[in-house]
Lab assay of single mutants.
Amino acid sequence: MDVFMKGLSKAKEGVVAAAEKTKQGVAEAAGKTKEGVLYVGSKTKEGVVHGVATVAEKTKEQVTNVGGAVVTGVTAVAQKTVEGAGSIAAATGFVKKDQLGKNEEGAPQEGILEDMPVDPDNEAYEMPSEEGYQDYEPEA
């Protein structure tokens, strides 16, 4: 019985440690998101679009440190934060509304985080759909 109880105690310690790591990862992701939003706020009209992409990228980098179902929630929060940063930029006159959601080359930025393969159960990952990809044929 002692062996059984000791095993359960060790398992509990492992769960607590994993929860603490997840909590730490979420806190880091939130900190990076805040950094990115402050970065966007300090940019001029020309830099705002690039700044919004930076927020998304920093958040995406930190999301990889967070495991399990938390990833889905962090990704949703990050996307809403990026959308909010863009709205703030438009409201303050840093950028025109028609410039939001495009990178410096004018290509749409939507789907940055949505296409990231995420499995809350950590069982399997699927690649994003290939609808947006084109076949590449090298020139002879």
Score class of each variant (00 low, 15 high):
41 G>K: 02
40 V>F: 03
68 G>Q: 02
86 G>L: 05
124 A>P: 02
37 V>A: 09
34 K>F: 08
133 Y>L: 15
138 P>H: 05
89 A>I: 08
92 T>N: 04
29 A>Y: 08
1 M>R: 00
138 P>R: 09
60 K>H: 04
61 E>Q: 09
22 T>F: 12
94 F>V: 04
134 Q>L: 05
65 N>Q: 05
114 E>D: 15
97 K>W: 15
86 G>E: 07
35 E>M: 14
24 Q>M: 14
25 G>R: 07
30 A>E: 00
71 V>C: 05
138 P>I: 02
106 G>N: 10
65 N>Y: 10
13 E>I: 02
39 Y>S: 09
87 S>L: 12
16 V>C: 05
5 M>H: 00
120 P>H: 13
26 V>N: 00
114 E>P: 07
88 I>H: 01
140 A>S: 12
12 K>A: 08
117 P>C: 08
140 A>T: 13
118 V>T: 06
97 K>R: 14
42 S>C: 04
97 K>P: 09
49 V>F: 10
138 P>L: 02
10 K>V: 14
2 D>M: 06
9 S>P: 00
35 E>G: 03
69 A>S: 07
3 V>N: 10
140 A>W: 13
66 V>P: 01
93 G>A: 15
75 T>P: 01
134 Q>F: 08
114 E>L: 13
86 G>Q: 15
13 E>T: 04
108 P>F: 08
60 K>W: 13
15 V>S: 03
97 K>Y: 02
26 V>F: 15
28 E>W: 05
1 M>H: 00
45 K>Y: 02
32 K>P: 00
59 T>W: 05
81 T>A: 10
56 A>M: 13
4 F>T: 01
51 G>A: 03
58 K>W: 14
13 E>L: 04
89 A>F: 11
28 E>G: 04
136 Y>C: 11
64 T>C: 15
50 H>F: 04
130 E>V: 15
133 Y>H: 10
113 L>Y: 14
98 D>N: 15
140 A>P: 15
12 K>F: 04
33 T>V: 11
83 E>S: 03
28 E>F: 08
81 T>G: 04
71 V>K: 12
40 V>T: 02
98 D>E: 14
113 L>N: 05
78 A>H: 05
26 V>P: 00
37 V>N: 00
33 T>A: 09
85 A>E: 01
83 E>Q: 10
28 E>H: 14
29 A>F: 14
79 Q>M: 08
90 A>V: 05
84 G>E: 10
14 G>H: 13
134 Q>S: 06
20 E>T: 12
80 K>I: 07
1 M>W: 00
66 V>W: 10
64 T>S: 15
76 A>M: 08
112 I>S: 08
51 G>M: 12
16 V>F: 15
140 A>F: 13
84 G>T: 12
101 G>Q: 08
50 H>V: 03
135 D>H: 06
137 E>R: 14
21 K>R: 15
132 G>M: 12
44 T>S: 09
115 D>C: 07
57 E>V: 14
75 T>S: 09
58 K>D: 00
106 G>L: 04
11 A>L: 07
16 V>Q: 13
23 K>N: 00
98 D>A: 05
67 G>M: 12
7 G>A: 14
57 E>G: 08
75 T>W: 11
94 F>R: 01
81 T>K: 02
27 A>L: 12
45 K>H: 01
130 E>R: 06
133 Y>C: 10
127 M>L: 13
106 G>R: 08
88 I>A: 04
62 Q>S: 13
73 G>Q: 10
84 G>C: 13
140 A>E: 06
104 E>M: 15
11 A>W: 15
91 A>N: 06
37 V>K: 00
24 Q>W: 04
58 K>G: 01
120 P>E: 05
66 V>F: 13
76 A>C: 13
22 T>L: 04
28 E>S: 14
134 Q>G: 12
19 A>S: 05
75 T>I: 08
30 A>C: 06
57 E>L: 11
103 N>V: 15
112 I>L: 05
23 K>T: 10
96 K>W: 06
108 P>K: 02
61 E>V: 10
106 G>W: 14
122 N>L: 07
14 G>L: 10
117 P>N: 06
103 N>M: 10
43 K>L: 05
16 V>N: 07
43 K>Q: 15
67 G>D: 00
25 G>N: 02
24 Q>H: 12
65 N>C: 11
119 D>E: 06
134 Q>D: 13
5 M>V: 14
14 G>Y: 14
15 V>W: 05
61 E>I: 10
54 T>M: 15
116 M>C: 13
57 E>S: 05
53 A>V: 06
128 P>G: 09
49 V>A: 11
119 D>V: 08
88 I>L: 11
24 Q>R: 07
140 A>C: 13
59 T>Q: 01
96 K>T: 05
86 G>K: 10
112 I>W: 11
19 A>R: 05
72 T>Y: 02
113 L>W: 08
14 G>C: 11
81 T>I: 14
121 D>P: 09
9 S>Y: 03
51 G>V: 15
71 V>Y: 15
137 E>S: 09
132 G>F: 10
7 G>E: 01
102 K>L: 06
58 K>H: 11
8 L>N: 00
74 V>F: 07
43 K>W: 08
95 V>N: 11
46 E>H: 14
35 E>F: 12
87 S>A: 14
46 E>Q: 14
84 G>S: 14
131 E>P: 11
23 K>A: 06
3 V>P: 00
75 T>L: 11
122 N>I: 03
80 K>E: 01
5 M>G: 01
123 E>S: 06
121 D>C: 07
129 S>I: 06
120 P>D: 04
3 V>L: 15
129 S>V: 06
40 V>H: 02
38 L>M: 14
32 K>I: 09
136 Y>I: 12
38 L>G: 02
10 K>P: 00
68 G>T: 10
31 G>Y: 05
139 E>R: 13
122 N>H: 06
112 I>M: 07
52 V>A: 14
23 K>H: 03
60 K>C: 10
7 G>T: 14
83 E>I: 04
58 K>Q: 15
39 Y>I: 10
11 A>E: 00
15 V>R: 00
110 E>L: 14
98 D>V: 02
90 A>K: 14
118 V>F: 08
91 A>C: 09
2 D>C: 12
117 P>I: 04
109 Q>T: 08
64 T>P: 01
68 G>A: 04
23 K>E: 01
54 T>W: 12
